[in-house]
Design a protein around this nucleic acid. Sequence first.
DNA 1: AATGAATGAGTTTTCATTCAT
DNA 2: GATGAATGAAAACTCATTCAT
Lengths: 224, 224, 224, 224
Amino acid sequence: MAKRISEAGAVAAKGQKRPPRDAERTRRAILAAAEKEFAEKALSGARVDAIAERAGTNKQMIYYYFESKEKLYQLVLEHAYGAMRKAERELNLLDLEPLQAIRRLVEFKCDYDFAHPRFIRLLAVENLQNAAFLVRSQELKAMHDSLIVTLETILRRGEERGEIKPGIEPLQLYITISSLSYFYMSNAATLSVVFNRDDLRRPDQFALRRTHAIEVAMDFVRPR
Amino acid sequence: MAKRISEAGAVAAKGQKRPPRDAERTRRAILAAAEKEFAEKALSGARVDAIAERAGTNKQMIYYYFESKEKLYQLVLEHAYGAMRKAERELNLLDLEPLQAIRRLVEFKCDYDFAHPRFIRLLAVENLQNAAFLVRSQELKAMHDSLIVTLETILRRGEERGEIKPGIEPLQLYITISSLSYFYMSNAATLSVVFNRDDLRRPDQFALRRTHAIEVAMDFVRPR
Amino acid sequence: MAKRISEAGAVAAKGQKRPPRDAERTRRAILAAAEKEFAEKALSGARVDAIAERAGTNKQMIYYYFESKEKLYQLVLEHAYGAMRKAERELNLLDLEPLQAIRRLVEFKCDYDFAHPRFIRLLAVENLQNAAFLVRSQELKAMHDSLIVTLETILRRGEERGEIKPGIEPLQLYITISSLSYFYMSNAATLSVVFNRDDLRRPDQFALRRTHAIEVAMDFVRPR
Amino acid sequence: MAKRISEAGAVAAKGQKRPPRDAERTRRAILAAAEKEFAEKALSGARVDAIAERAGTNKQMIYYYFESKEKLYQLVLEHAYGAMRKAERELNLLDLEPLQAIRRLVEFKCDYDFAHPRFIRLLAVENLQNAAFLVRSQELKAMHDSLIVTLETILRRGEERGEIKPGIEPLQLYITISSLSYFYMSNAATLSVVFNRDDLRRPDQFALRRTHAIEVAMDFVRPR
DNA sequence: AATGAATGAGTTTTCATTCAT
DNA sequence: GATGAATGAAAACTCATTCAT
């Protein structure tokens, strides 16, 4: 983008009044912009310039607040992943009946994945990088496997009451529940092309997926 | 890029002797190298230089044979996707009993995903690009939805015989079957970190996943 | 490009002190350097690196300020052509007697062509490109044919007074007047070789051309 | 241009039968193609690939017959320039009456320039290169200034008879006569844009130029 | 805290030329 | 004579990062 000397800086980016020197505001604007950019373009495809422009600020601010593109990515990833984990914990699944808890988890996964397409993309990006940045995150590693323990508890309770098929591995179940909506969302683009369906991401179509996912999960956990 | 002069010129990257001036061989070497590079680094992260080095040739050959990095990516994608579709078609599911057919499809998906990690990654890459290249591929669009028609036939047959639960949507079922192994493979990196399990990609662990996937699918399709 | 670290950063390529971080100065230095490079080597032969070096900056600044080599060329062309047109307008030919006006125009064309060899070359370059960039220039197209109207007025005035031969086409006259010095300057190199005259571009030799050109033009416009 | 292995060389370029192994034919095809390419794109912009394709042969033949791109350019230039000089000599101006000879020369220049736009362009190209290749051409330098001597003779004859204004410099006259059609042709592209006339190169328009050029030259040489 | 200017190291692509058959 | 394959050098352009104000 060529700079034109004369008009430089005369008018603010969006024409909205922006209070000058608001550190926190700038920081957040950069983080939000970075989330979009990284989700859309992956780490290697994201451009610092583009992030600055999206944030309505300039490149230097990114280095001022975040040190480097990679550090910024790391933070974005932690934010996105942490938010999902936080929401997951707030489900308080242990307060529900076993079957209700399973159903609730499936619903949550579906709703979250549908509502957070950028999270889905960031996760895909990070997996393509072999979780190189997730590994380094002390914060996220601390959240570890509490969910698996929770699921284990729920499954055992259900088994004892005869409401849940015995022998289910909590990790496998979690992965299956996650996959049911994640794959649909993460691969919607190619699925749309291959099956000539351009409506998969429409709410009404996703509702069908959600119903289906619940049925698959419940059919699996219920004893026959 | 290190220059190898003496012995290295004689011995190709993989230790096989490479006859000079063999167009077809060079072409294939580039395609194979590109598949690796694109699968590892995505389109934006892949380096033409790196592809050339991996192929034991120089980058100009890439332009000679493939015109551009993007055209090369397109071809790689078509090859990888086409190969999967071909294998899928060769299952001849219509020759099997309905339940056997469903089980066979799940097994195939698991085995294929496990055996072709680069295909999984290329698909993830392409989805991050919103299938921008798949859309342009006339070849792949032609393969369209024959599988969905096949699944529909199988499901109806099974319904009629009372072996399969009525009302199952073939597209939803296909997506579910696909997701069961795909998600496990595509997200193995982050799952490993989050659940502190560095063994998910080991064959024995994947075997557990495979068994689980079959059970989930069969529990879903069987009438209760 | 040699790295100058200590004192060399202070002193620019031409021995003039160059204040750092002076956008306007850098921009102008690039434009001036580009004019030279394009005039000498044409668009395809000009090197972005060479322009940067001539401007005492680095090539990235060229992209920063001008976006691309072609855009830079476009600007250089517009500058050079615009300057000539401006000078032409400032002749105020309508304020002169008809014959004086014609003579004045011939003198101007000679003087301008002789003083601006780079303009001559840029015009040749642009013509080799079939005026591809001039066509796109809104700015230059706006200057259009005011000169032809002016000439028409002068010719008609002269005709009425019996000072100018009737029936002269203003466009043909303008082209002829332009050609008399332009061709001499644009083709001086080959003429020098073919006629074994290495002095054609010397001021004294050009003065002969100028006198000759005036005579040709005046002989043509005067009634017999 | 990417090569597709399968179809390589199966069909000839234009589908016309081309006798294999005809050295002279290939040579000429390359020269003709090169003339077009160099005239269109100048030396730096011309592509060896493009010349080969235009000639319906391959790059290597160019090196086989002409050694290098520059040598090929040199030959093209010599051919084009030599042809013009040859035609000029064949005018046999000394056999005509002085005024007839001048008029004949103007007509010839106009007709030749109009009929040989590539020659005009090659000359412009060579002048942009400061006649670097013309200088090296022994062949062309040998043709030297015979024309100037001829003109001198004609002028003196005319002077003696009182048909031609005394004191005319033959070199200046030759340059003027050359410029009258050359400039019109060489700068037709920019003139068209600037004066909003897209018809300048049409035969009927050029005929007007020709008439005008003759009038300018004759008005100049005739005594008043 | 904010901004525009500057830079070094890449990255894709091009191109004249040569090699092998 | 003819052709396709191969290569080294350079070209335009990009991009993360830092400097100066």
